[in-house]
């Protein structure tokens, strides 16, 4: 299924003009976690089901529009209902919907299962930066929009965003996690509602003041994955990216040591300004 899909999309993409900098991205990228792949497959499944239905329905419409034109001397028939037909096109959609609901429910159950995780990070949203706290490792720091992006994004800054690497998707201190480990994220917020989202992990959840939400992911490739705050949280909602740096276990451990040794970054981050006005 997914294969066919990808080929199809590759085809679509290839058929588009591609500039030097252009990313004529058409579809949801396949992520680097089991969940994100399941979600992507689900997304493609419903997408294609809709395409098929669309072809059928629009086909019928276009046929009627072309075939029964008055200008072509079409004379109207007189039928105005058919119980059989109506029953059919009530039942078929129901069947299709069930076919969609089953895999969806299965995936959902999997997503909600946050048990036996290897690492727990508490994420707190503030206007407008994230605070990460490794509950058992006694490490905590703020993560704020990178200086370069922040300078460029000021009103009429004169800086061309295209010259900024990872414009608006870069932070001073990314969240660092080990590859292949089930990371449990506890979400809450200090002021207003925010939402923590990394597309490559297929996960998005609201960070709500006074309450704690949970999500989990297990990244199976090292690398840096970028997302954004996904709930309107005021003036700089567009400027509090989420960056996760997935490292090999060794790199992660050494990074952790560094932090626990009270590396400057931690304190620096602690006092980082919410936004550079």
């Amino acid at each position: 299924m997914v294969k066919i899909v990808n080929c199809a999309l590759a085809g679509l993409l290839a058929s588009l003009p591609v500039h030097s900098f252009a990313a004529w991205e058409l579809n949801m990228p396949v992520g680097v976690t089991e969940l994100s792949r399941r979600i992507h497959a689900l997304h493609m499944l419903i997408f294609w089901i809709c395409v098929v239905i669309a072809i059928a329905v629009f086909g019928a419409m276009i046929y009627s529009i072309v075939k029964f034109r008055r200008s072509q001397g079409a004379v109207p028939a007189s039928f105005d209902h058919s119980t059989r037909a109506e029953i059919i096109w009530t039942i078929i959609p129901i069947v299709i919907l069930v076919a969609m609901a089953v895999p969806a429910a299965a995936t959902l159950v999997r997503i909600e299962d946050t048990r036996n995780s290897d690492l727990t990070v508490k994420v707190t949203g503030y206007q407008w930066r994230w605070h990460y706290e490794y509950l058992d490792q006694k490490v905590a720091f703020f993560s704020t929009l990178a200086r370069e992006s922040n300078a460029a994004r000021q009103l009429r800054s004169g800086v061309d965003p295209k010259t900024v690497t990872n414009y608006l998707l870069d932070v001073d201190h990314p969240l660092v996690v080990p590859v292949g480990k089930k990371v449990r994220v506890l979400l809450t917020a200090g002021d207003v509602i925010h939402a923590w989202w990394v597309p490559a992990f297929g996960m998005k959840k609201d960070a709500i003041p006074g309450f704690v939400n949970e999500l989990w992911f297990r990244a199976d490739q090292t690398g840096i994955y970028r997302g954004q705050c996904a709930e309107l949280c005021g003036r700089d909602h567009g400027f509090m990216p989420v960056v996760v740096d997935v490292r090999s276990q060794e790199d992660y451990d050494s990074w952790l040591k560094e932090q626990q040794a009270g590396a400057p970054t931690a304190q620096a981050a602690g006092t980082a300004p919410a936004t550079a006005e």
Binding site: K122, G210, F211
Partner: peptide
């Protein structure tokens, strides 16, 4: 009840 840590919101109470 959720603030009291019942149901899916156990951690709400723990963290607080």
């Amino acid at each position: 009840p959720w603030l009291g840590g019942e149901g899916t919101k156990l951690l709400t109470a723990v963290v607080r």
